[in-house]
Computed example of a mutant assay.
Amino acid sequence: MRFFIFLTGFGFAVTGGVSFIMYFNLLAAGMTWPDYASFTLRRPECNLFFVGWILIFFGLKE
Rank of each mutant, 00 (worst) to 15 (best):
G17L: 04
E62P: 13
L60Y: 07
S19I: 10
P44Y: 07
R2C: 11
D35C: 03
M22W: 13
P34T: 05
I21E: 11
F20E: 11
V14G: 00
K61Q: 07
F12P: 01
G30H: 06
I5T: 12
F6V: 07
M31E: 13
L26Q: 13
V18A: 04
F50C: 01
T15A: 13
G59Q: 02
G11M: 10
S19Y: 14
F10P: 01
A28K: 12
L41V: 04
L27M: 08
G30M: 09
C46N: 15
I21F: 11
T32H: 04
A13K: 05
T32N: 06
F57P: 00
F39H: 15
T8I: 15
R2G: 15
F50Q: 00
P34Y: 03
S19D: 15
K61Y: 08
A28H: 08
L7N: 12
F39Y: 15
K61H: 06
L27E: 02
L26H: 10
V14C: 04
L60F: 09
V18R: 01
L55T: 02
V18L: 06
P34G: 02
T8K: 01
A37W: 13
G59N: 04
C46F: 06
F24E: 04
I5E: 03
W33Y: 09
T32M: 03
F20I: 11
R43G: 02
G9F: 03
L41Y: 01
L55D: 03
F10L: 15
F58S: 02
L27Q: 05
G17V: 03
Y23R: 14
R42W: 09
K61W: 09
P44Q: 12
Y23K: 15
L48M: 14
F10D: 03
L27G: 02
F58H: 02
F6M: 10
A13F: 10
S19E: 15
F50G: 00
M31K: 12
D35A: 14
N25T: 11
G11W: 07
G16Y: 03
F4M: 12
W53E: 01
F4C: 08
T8N: 02
C46W: 04
R43K: 07
R42M: 14
L48H: 05
E45F: 09
A13H: 05
R2H: 14
I54H: 01
R2W: 06
T40I: 13
M22D: 14
N25Q: 13
T32C: 03
L55E: 02
D35T: 13
I5S: 03
R2K: 15
W33K: 07
M31I: 10
I21N: 10
I54R: 02
N47H: 07
M22Q: 15
F24S: 11
G17M: 03
R42N: 15
F20L: 15
I21K: 13
L26P: 05
L48G: 02
N25P: 06
E62K: 15
G59F: 05
G52H: 04
I54G: 01
E45C: 05
F49Q: 05
G30E: 10
W33R: 08
L41F: 00
N25H: 10
F49P: 04
F10A: 12
S19M: 14
M31C: 07
F57D: 00
E45G: 03
A28Y: 08
V51M: 09
L26R: 11
V18F: 00
F20K: 07
F57L: 10
